[in-house]
Design a protein around this nucleic acid. Sequence first.
DNA 1: TGGGATTATATGGGCGTCAATGGGTATATG
DNA 2: CATATACCCATTGACGCCCATATAATCCCA
Lengths: 153, 153
Amino acid sequence: MDLFVSKYFNKIDKKGRISLPSSFRNVLPKANKNEIILYKSIKSPSIEGCGVGRLKEIAKRINNLDFFSEDYDDFSTSIFSEIVTTNVDKEGRFLIPEELKLYAGIKTEAAFFGQGHFFQIWEPKQGLKNTEDSRRRLLKEKKSLRMMLTQQK
Amino acid sequence: MDLFVSKYFNKIDKKGRISLPSSFRNVLPKANKNEIILYKSIKSPSIEGCGVGRLKEIAKRINNLDFFSEDYDDFSTSIFSEIVTTNVDKEGRFLIPEELKLYAGIKTEAAFFGQGHFFQIWEPKQGLKNTEDSRRRLLKEKKSLRMMLTQQK
DNA sequence: TGGGATTATATGGGCGTCAATGGGTATATG
DNA sequence: CATATACCCATTGACGCCCATATAATCCCA
């Protein structure tokens, strides 16, 4: 599987290390297996992460915004300048920068949520609440969620 | 046959393993024969499953949404983080995550119901009851049932 | 076509490997 | 030299892989 899926709850040890879920590690290209990028989510108090290869895709999406709009600068600045790269050690652990932990309210434990081509890291309780809220919003429009899941190509 | 059809009742062993019905295994593409995805059904207390190929289609659809919209996150969260991938061992068995078992009320036995392009896993009694209810609902509208059964493509 | 033989499927269990976690020590970096 | 971080090793529990068995389905040949 080459997508980030499912959710995991891991602990941060005394040294600040936390395990990237094994299935997430397998999504990273073998070439850059030991490096990920992290940045503050624009839409929620969570951290988003992915392999370094995804940077190109992010750039493309931002480029698709109207260059002269306010959004362009805002997104461009908010995302690129906030990106940090982190190394994953031999055991599959990495360090979450203090600033990002603060942004997400993470202390001793964190929840990883697969999002397909990237993942989110949340303070566990907030993350679970966010999942519920998302689902509640979508269930209001049952048809569209069902379509996503069952539509045949 | 490349569709999930018929129903089967299998047991969960001490280790939590359960056999994926043989005919279901044969539906999975040879390339990804040993991996399936599972997720909570939207409209019933059951688990739905299918091969990983289907997940990639879903990913494509979500990817086509406006990346900076609220909907994107809602779909992405509700689908990717709720989906789990599970490995099918050489004997054709897999593990149902605890959370999904709870959702479906499954303890020591489970019922598999073919649904064409995917399948459902139910607590046996509830599953049977659901089948009856479905049929009863359909018979109330004989017209549409007759149409569906007799209509030629 | 009958009936024994072969194969497949569902299920049980032993055991090695891996993932998550903890901690000591070397190395780097300012 | 002090703090941070990478590397190495250890522990525990979960999971994957292998082998075994019983029942059911299929086959094959007289």
